[in-house]
Design a protein around this nucleic acid. Sequence first.
DNA 1: CGTGACCTTGATGACGCTCAAGTGCGGTGG
DNA 2: CCACCGCACTTGAGCGTCATCAAGGTCACG
Lengths: 254, 254
Amino acid sequence: MKPLSLHDSVHVLDLPRALPGALLQLDGRQTAADLPCETDELGALFGYRIPEAVARGKALFWEGAPAEHIFQIVGGVLRLFRMSSEGRRVMVGFAFPGDVLSIAVKDHYLFTAEAVTPTRVRRISRERLAIQIAEQPKVATIVFDRMREELCAVHHQTLLLLCQTAEMRIVRFLLWIAHKNPGAVETGAEFALPMLRTDIADYLGLTMETVCRTMTKLRRNGLIVMRGPHKIRFPNPRLVKDVADLGDSRGEWL
Amino acid sequence: MKPLSLHDSVHVLDLPRALPGALLQLDGRQTAADLPCETDELGALFGYRIPEAVARGKALFWEGAPAEHIFQIVGGVLRLFRMSSEGRRVMVGFAFPGDVLSIAVKDHYLFTAEAVTPTRVRRISRERLAIQIAEQPKVATIVFDRMREELCAVHHQTLLLLCQTAEMRIVRFLLWIAHKNPGAVETGAEFALPMLRTDIADYLGLTMETVCRTMTKLRRNGLIVMRGPHKIRFPNPRLVKDVADLGDSRGEWL
DNA sequence: CGTGACCTTGATGACGCTCAAGTGCGGTGG
DNA sequence: CCACCGCACTTGAGCGTCATCAAGGTCACG
């Protein structure tokens, strides 16, 4: 008899069978229009481009290369990282559907963007964007807003890194990912955690081992349920709220 | 006989007597034109405003307040911080002469700005800026560049926080401050470290005690010389370069 | 069915946090 | 002018958390 996998949710009798659309959002494989590009303001810029595919593990662009294009993620997830002077990988972010990459850079890409899952993107040349800005003043506003978003994203990581304990960082990280799927936290629905453990570790300034151990602890405490390493649920929304609000008082709710 | 202070540099016979202009830059008290505002592109925006003083410890604006103005720091240093949900202070940056604050925010300030030293600033209303952008397309470019700078600043903090050891974080932090005074690292000239130990700690995700202890260690290792808690020198530029480049191999060069 | 990539768990020790005491220094009031 | 006081800084002792090194476990794929 095959031993139970670590990830079998033996305590949970009926898992959600269908995850309508929520998980699809993080998957780059569907061919229909993944995002309603025409409804958001960037549609005019990216809408008429045919999305191109980026295979899992392939880079969309490299750190230091001349920045010729701006990209909109249509489907899939990318990891954004730099190489430190010592050769260590420094994760500076993740990109999700709807995100726009490198709108704020001047002439060279600041980081490498690599597909975590099969990914689909639209691109526009920086030249073209410059022309659009000159022609339509309204475009400048859109670009401003996107730059603000990019700023917020970096700020978000900073706040994560300023959490004292590994546990807090990881809980907040998981909540952040969960929020990409509307309602996932409130309903306890399953969501995808597509990136590798090492990606998470590099993003949070931890080691892979600490990420693993902490997630195991969270599982034991009943905060999360895992079905394989990359599918997570928050079975108890109230518990989550307590933890997230309460802050650092570590060891409670166990 | 009074015992030697911890900060007396007994090994160094002649300290630099005059620090021509370098330290002045971080001091908000002088009344002449502190920064050559007319030479940089923002001069047109801020140059005609009379700088106003912010006393040490006073706030320039508060987190959450409606963002009505944009500020240019003329002299002095400010700390930029938020309050976390648990009431902890989270330092998100420092502002130095030449920096422009809150150009990227939409409607409310994201953090509180408080004067570390007596500070002098110029302000311009956001409305006025919006008008300027509409009238002169070139202004938009300036604003873009400033937003890029703000983004880089946050990125810089992220990279600091991703350093593994406290020592590395502090060395890099000190180098960053030193670079505000042109040539300070190369020549080994003294520079000001105006912020409190707690400010540094909150910025680097450490405790005040660890900051103290680590700086003591750096002093013992000969990497830095202190004359009081807020005046630092790098007596050996070559040593500094090794440390900064070499990365984490901790314990060497001692 | 072997191989490799990824994930998980264990043992150990160092780094950094906590609590606590002590120092230096500027300001205020007697 | 000096004593006192408070704040910031410094140092110490003890301990918990997390990094490191190492060994399995699981799964996909050829």
